[in-house]
Simulated scan of single mutants.
Amino acid sequence: METLHLVLNAVTVIFIAVTMFAAGLGATVSALHGVFTNVPLLVLALIANIVVVPLLGWGIGALLSLPAASFVALILVASSPGGPFGAKLAMVQGGDVVSGAAMQVLLASVGSITFAPTVNGLLTAADLGANVSLDVGALVRTVALLQLVPFAVGLLLRRYADATARSWYPSAAAVSNVTFLIVLAGMLLGNWQAVVALLGSLALLAGFLLSALSFAAGTLLATGPPVQRTTMGGVASVRNAGPALAAIGLAFNDQPAILGALAAILLSGLAAALPIASFLSSRREEPVAAETEVRTHDRR
């Protein structure tokens, strides 16, 4: 099992780095500038991810009267924005990948700073205790190394070696897709006991509801065309497991019950977000297919 975890961790690192690299290859400086100068979009995304989603986690936990371990795990997940699956969901739904990747990196960086105080405040409000303290510098360095650097390298290639970037993009996207499937399978295989143990509880439902409602909140609290808004919804629906795992190790002594609940909540969250992204993708493909058919008919 230890070997499986090591392999899964390695593949996860590859998945995050390659996904961000592919997003950079598909981006342009002008498009990125448009995202970071769109103040209403930035402010609304920060409100959705830093304020609304954590409050949703607290509210869902209280509403479902979750056991302490599951409640703690739900708050940890909800308080940690900028999950690396955000850029992947943008690709899956055929959304605005540039905005999704850029916002994901920004939220992960900001979340490194806001995570601990947000968790402490919500744990206190839920009467679950509060003593979470993390190394902010280490979290920021992790975000920079795994997300920002690959994205920046891809972006620079696109700007200064456009032909190379365009030729590399299909391979990078393919590696991202394959490693994504391996990570999903590994998460299920490595945590199936924890998930099975929680089948009789409401933890899986809590994770599913958190992801679905976060998708809706992120979409509603966004500006721009529908493609951009639903991309922001996808970014909000998947959270960053890194700070949550670090908090469990430092503040909760790696309690198995909390670790198991965390795995179950993350998996059930993906079970909610992926079908939504796939549905959006199918809806966007239908008009394109219809338009192509009309053009073909007109030519005849």
Rank of each mutant, 00 (worst) to 15 (best):
Ala264His: 01
Gly34Phe: 11
Val143Arg: 07
Ala174Cys: 09
Leu107Gly: 05
Val105Gly: 02
Leu270His: 04
Thr118Gln: 14
Thr124Phe: 07
Ser70Asn: 09
Ala126Leu: 00
Ser281Gln: 03
Val238Asp: 01
Pro170Glu: 04
Ser176Met: 15
Pro81Ser: 00
Ala102Met: 04
His33Val: 10
Phe21Val: 01
Ile276Ala: 13
Arg299Ile: 13
Ile14Thr: 06
Ala161Cys: 06
Val149Tyr: 03
Thr19Lys: 02
Leu189Ala: 15
Pro81Gly: 03
Ile47Phe: 06
Ala23Gly: 12
Gly186Phe: 10
Phe115Asp: 02
Val110Glu: 05
Leu76Cys: 08
Leu157His: 06
Val39Trp: 03
Ala152Asn: 11
Thr118Trp: 01
Asp298Val: 14
Ala152Phe: 12
Asn131Gly: 14
Ala27Tyr: 00
Pro256Glu: 00
Ala257Glu: 09
Arg158Ala: 15
Phe180Met: 15
Ser109Asp: 09
Ser278His: 08
Val143Trp: 10
Phe85Ile: 07
Ala17Pro: 14
Ala236Cys: 13
Gly224Trp: 05
Gly24Phe: 08
Thr164Pro: 07
Thr292Asp: 14
Val119Cys: 13
Arg239Glu: 06
Glu285Met: 09
Asn49Asp: 04
Ala206Leu: 06
Ala236Gly: 06
Ala101His: 00
Leu155Cys: 13
Asp298His: 15
Thr37Pro: 00
Leu32Ile: 14
Thr223Asp: 11
Gly82Pro: 03
Thr296Val: 13
Ala271Gln: 13
Leu199Ser: 12
Gly224Asp: 14
Trp168Tyr: 15
Met232Gly: 09
Arg141Asn: 11
Ala101Asn: 04
Ala10Asp: 03
